[in-house]
Amino acid sequence: MTWLRLNWPQVLQLVGDHLALSLPAILLSILIAVPIGYLAVRLRWLGKPLLLTATLLYAIPALPLLIIIAAVFGFSLRSPETMIAALTIYGVALLVRTAADGFDAVDGFVRDSAIALGHSPLVIFFKVDLPLAVPVLISGIRVVAVSTVSLVTIGALIGVSGLGFFLTDGFQRGILGEVVTGLLASVALAGLLDALVFAGGRAMTPWVRVVDSQPKLGVAK
């Protein structure tokens, strides 16, 4: 606690750096993974290879991935771009499967009705598939948000600024309070983003609560 009291301005600054890396990566993951997940469901022949690629990408360990990304894309190893690219790859790999599951679970009759009403594929995606998949998507995004925040700490090993700095610096200087602060701050930040995504999901799907709160027919005795 003493360490935290003496160093809280630095803690706040690194929380900021941490968010500056996590948030773009989480947003990019959503923007990339949702359309891919949709394609994987609508075009069955494409689905299997897409999901397999996602599984393989997720199998790549983080530190080696950072090094390879820097080498392949020509980014500097210590640049935020390297970190965000790696985080986005993991985020997409995690989210594609959930997105595919979410779109797959959309009731076929509802889609057919929308088609029968003469809606274009684009309208069906935005007005039918996407809203109905939101609850599953949100559960996937929560996982991505939490694991992204936790992964950003690895950046400290290559010199990217974030809460991971407290882990490496505290370890090297033998300050337990610093390591514990870095660990807890990262966990707290992950919890905060998780709660925000959860709240956002609730706000976006008011009908879910209405359905849940109504007595279910047939189940009532």
Binding site: S150, G170, L183, S186
Partner: peptide
């Protein structure tokens, strides 16, 4: 998911 692996390693280290 929330606990950073590097944090656990340095803490135990």
């Amino acid at each position: 998911r929330a606990i950073p692996t590097l944090g656990l390693l340095t803490l135990f280290g």
